[in-house]
């Protein structure tokens, strides 16, 4: 392997990792606010991609209009999911909630298969083609994924630290009861957090569409993002981002090195990290003490 190939793989990996990171952002966001690990997040991402596809191509509204409508739909879906289903589970055991989110994910995936079929579909995006930089040929879509991730992360950071709503969310995620006593509408905020996470996931699905195409199978990205988040340390957003980038970059190299296990290296890395450093690289969750 030459260094240009290595660089090429690194950039592909970075783009892939950014996509995972966008999905992981949603997980960690929900986890921090409610202690729920949403195993159905990959499915939300898939749903988002399908929604954009439906609006943009099947209804012929054009890409930008379709993207806006699709992301908005997912926001509504995320809000409704929390308000109608997840809110009932407050106070139930954590394991029941995990099982419930997995079941929801399976339902969403099957539903998508029934509505849109199982074959991969193409989403035409305005950022197609390639860019050549010093002998490297990079697909524009990959650059857009990286740039999109940076923009969304910065936006979310500003939102959480500067706006009143964002600070209220932080309060709710640190201590729900205390926030509730300070007149923070915790229930509604949690639903809004679900909505934002779903919207970020939809954006991820849309941005990654040129690479992965759109099919029910792209839900696997959700599990890889989960693996990335675990590698980085689940509770922290920077940790999750780092873990996802790490997994994204490591994947193409390992696939290249030993193809028979192609596609499952993310899980192998995660299991390895769990054995060696059970808290992830940047630990954030701590054992509960009395």
């Amino acid at each position: 392997m030459q260094w240009t190939d290595a660089l090429q793989l690194t950039i592909i990996g970075l783009a892939q990792g950014s996509g995972y990171a966008l999905v992981a952002l949603g997980f960690v966001f929900i986890y921090r606010a409610t202690e729920i690990v949403n195993f159905a997040h990959g499915e939300l991402m898939m749903l988002g991609a399908f929604m954009v596809l439906t609006f943009a191509e099947l209804w012929g509204l054009g890409f930008w209009m379709g993207a806006a409508l699709g992301i908005l739909t997912l926001g509504v879906a995320g809000y409704a999911l929390d308000a109608a289903v997840m809110r009932r589970m407050i106070g139930e055991s954590q394991s029941s909630v995990f099982i419930l989110t997995v079941a929801l994910g399976v339902m969403l995936k099957a539903l998508a298969g029934m509505i849109w079929g199982y074959g991969p579909r193409n989403l035409t995006v305005p950022f197609q083609g390639t860019v050549e930089v010093g002998g490297l040929v990079i697909a524009t879509s990959r650059i857009v994924v990286i740039a999109g991730t940076i923009v969304i992360c910065a936006g979310l950071y500003l939102f959480l630290s500067r706006t009143k709503l964002g600070v209220a969310m932080q309060a709710a995620s640190q201590n729900q009861l205390a926030a509730y006593y300070s007149r923070v509408p915790v229930k509604r905020l949690v639903s809004v957090i679900w909505a934002i996470s779903a919207m970020v996931a939809a954006t991820a699905g849309m941005l990654m569409a040129p690479v992965t195409q759109v099919s029910p199978e792209i839900t696997a990205v959700g599990i890889k993002a989960l693996a990335g988040a675990v590698v980085g340390g689940f509770g922290s957003i920077p940790g999750a981002l780092l873990g996802c980038l790490l997994i994204g970059v490591a994947e193409p190299f390992l696939d290249y090195a030993y193809p028979p296990l192609q596609g499952v290296y993310a899980y192998a890395i995660m299991l390895l990290v769990l054995v060696v450093r059970p808290d992830g690289l940047i630990p954030q969750t701590f054992r509960k003490k009395v």
Binding site: V37, F39, Q94, S95, F98, I223, L226, A227, V230, F234, A266, Y267, M270, L271, L274, P278, D279, T285
Partner: peptide, 13 residues
């Protein structure tokens, strides 16, 4: 670790 690590680990496994 927390219960959910086990859930994720088994899923990946």
């Amino acid at each position: 670790m927390h219960g959910f690590y086990l859930a994720i680990a088994t899923l990946a496994f």
